[in-house]
């Protein structure tokens, strides 16, 4: 009897540990204003995944892309090897739509905001890292935004377990992959990009986890801004 309970206890503990390892954001960091040319730049690192972002704007816009009552947002994602393809285009659209939702574009009519993202290393959760890097760069450029945004990626493993901020290997083994962009004001979902199959319950769970994780990332944003301006009295 005692042995039974002991093994069960052990089982429980390993389960707990397993749970722990899955619900952890990898160590993350960022550096802002590291490039001299762009108006705002940042690098965002999540584990080994690393993205460099540069923002130009508000600036002159091509006549063909001019919108008379707001600024045009352009997002470019440069892969590390070869030329940008369909996958990059899809990611660009996700990031662009998120930026458009967050930026107060009507304040700069007939101008352009260009966000260039360079993949430095891909080790899973690339889209969420792109979103985070873009937001940090927009903050660095000092563009007016109605709220901040962040990206969180969740993977659902074959056993139905939700893994947050998965690595490339975990992404390969998972059943479904969900990326959400979440705003800082009300923690609403700005975009969702999903692959694979999952139930409504799992979707809601992933959203709830992402909202929880986003709080930490927003705290990180706040801390980095605080640190940056700590010496200005």
């Amino acid at each position: 009897m005692t042995r039974m309970s002991a093994t069960r206890g052990l089982c429980m503990r390993t389960m707990m540990e397993l749970d722990q390892s899955c619900s952890v954001l990898r160590e993350y960091g960022s550096e802002q204003s590291l490039l001299s040319k762009p108006d705002g730049s940042s690098t965002f690192v999540q584990g080994d995944t690393s993205i460099l972002a540069g923002v130009y704007g508000p600036a002159e816009v091509k006549v063909s892309k001019e919108i008379y009552d707001r600024a045009t947002v352009e997002v470019l994602i440069q892969p590390k090897m070869g030329l940008p393809g369909v996958r990059e285009r899809a990611r660009e659209q996700c990031v662009r739509e998120t930026c458009e939702a967050a930026l107060l574009l009507t304040l700069h009519p007939r101008s352009s905001v260009t966000v260039v993202l360079q993949v430095i290393h891909d080790d899973g959760s690339l889209l969420s890292c792109c979103l985070n890097a873009a937001c940090m760069a927009l903050m660095d450029a000092g563009l007016p935004m109605s709220h901040l945004f962040c990206g969180v990626t969740c993977a659902i493993s074959k056993e139905g377990q939700i893994i947050i901020d998965p690595t490339a290997r975990q992404e390969k083994e998972c059943r479904a992959l969900l990326t959400f962009a979440i705003d800082s004001a009300e923690c609403n979902v700005l975009i969702s990009s999903t692959t694979g199959s999952f139930s409504v319950q799992e979707l809601q769970q992933c959203i709830a986890i992402s909202q929880k994780a986003s709080e930490q990332i927003f705290q990180f944003y706040r801390d980095s801004v605080k640190r940056r301006y700590s010496k200005i009295q």
């Binding site: 722990q20 619900s23 960091g29 550096e31 690098t43 690393s50 929880k212 930490q216």
Partner: peptide, 26 residues
């Protein structure tokens, strides 16, 4: 890797350790 070579002493740089996310009541 690049994550390690990030200059930590700079004022524009911030790094965080691994952060657990509460999943209990999800």
């Amino acid at each position: 890797g690049f994550a390690e070579s990030m200059p930590k002493e700079r004022i524009t740089t911030l790094k965080r350790e691994e952060a657990p996310v509460e999943m209990a009541d999800v």
